[in-house]
């Protein structure tokens, strides 16, 4: 079973929920936590896993053999990403623009293009007690995170419960993180920014046709328009946690609330019951 935790707006508490829920569940079940926020992965700060393996992840890019190239121009006409260009009788490649689709090499009539590789980041696999932990770290200055996210998910295929911590936003890295999940928990806060970004995130999850629920953090700080929106859209609110200085402090130190604040376990149990209830429908 794959449960993704997403949000639209950043800083609403995705990682807090993902790490604590995964750790909490791993006390009784086989759980894997995938940190798919490869641009700014933070899950490991809280889980503190022992690393087992580390592997670099690459994206294929074209390498042109100038001796074989006849400068027919087919590759540069076909590339949708302007990653290969013909200037007079020279072929230029722009590896950082390449999406690694392989079309240029397939099209080249004189087999002048082979594929090299560009490093996009690292995938690390670790363990903490019973919990399997996998994350990706995007190489700084690399723009394309979705292929690295895909690799994290590939490494994380297992039979038990998989918790996915998604990046903020609603575009391709988030889609890649939550696609093929069985359920999405959207974490938000009851502020105008939280609501606006929740509306976008709900639209995205609906497009992907995945059942979802909402968890509201700092539930007492703003107004009640998030609750009204969820009621109108028929989206279950499976948890509301009030603003807590202790929780913020625990987070700031990189500690798991489930280990430090006994009352937090109750919230996690309620969330998990809520998810199971929704999935049983």
């Amino acid at each position: 079973m794959k449960i993704a935790i997403a949000s639209g707006k950043g800083g609403t508490g995705k990682t807090t929920l993902a790490t604590n829920l995964a750790y909490f569940l791993s006390e009784k079940e086989n759980v894997t936590l995938l940190d798919c926020d490869v641009e700014e992965p933070n899950g490991h700060i809280f889980i503190k896993p022992e690393w087992v393996t580390e592997e670099k992840c690459y994206l294929p890019i074209p390498q042109v053999n100038e001796d074989k190239c006849t400068h027919c121009g087919l590759c540069s006409q076909a590339c949708q990403f302007s990653a290969i260009a013909q200037v007079k009788d020279k072929i230029l490649t722009f590896p950082e623009l390449c999406h690694g689709c392989g079309l240029c090499a397939l099209l080249c009539p004189s087999q002048a293009i082979t594929e090299g590789f560009r490093e996009i980041g690292t995938v690390q696999i670790g363990k903490k007690n019973n919990l399997n932990f996998i994350h990706g770290k995007l190489r700084v200055s690399e723009a394309m995170s979705p292929p690295l996210i895909k690799e994290v998910k590939k490494q994380g295929k297992n039979r038990g419960i998989t918790i996915i911590d998604a990046p903020p936003g609603t575009s391709c890295p988030v889609i890649q993180s939550i696609v093929n999940s069985d359920f999405v928990i959207l974490v938000t806060e009851p502020t105008p920014f939280g609501l606006n970004d929740l509306e976008l995130a709900v639209g995205m999850v609906k497009e992907l046709n995945i059942p979802m629920a909402v968890a509201i953090n700092r539930a007492d700080i703003g107004d009640n328009r998030v609750q009204e929106f969820c009621a109108k859209e028929n989206i279950p609110v499976i948890m509301e946690i009030p603003h807590s200085y202790e929780l913020a402090r625990c987070y700031s130190q990189g500690n798991l609330a489930v280990q430090e604040l006994p009352e937090y376990k109750g919230y996690l149990q309620r969330i998990w019951d809520g998810v199971k209830k929704e999935l049983a429908r």
Partner: peptide, 28 residues
């Protein structure tokens, strides 16, 4: 936007100054 990927790179190339807002947490 948050992160360091595609939209962030697009928002800083050629800019004159970056102000980073950070919160005092280990993640921050």
């Amino acid at each position: 936007s948050p992160g360091i990927g595609c939209p962030v790179i697009a928002s800083i190339t050629g800019a004159d100054y970056v102000l980073i807002v950070v919160e005092p947490t280990l993640s921050g």
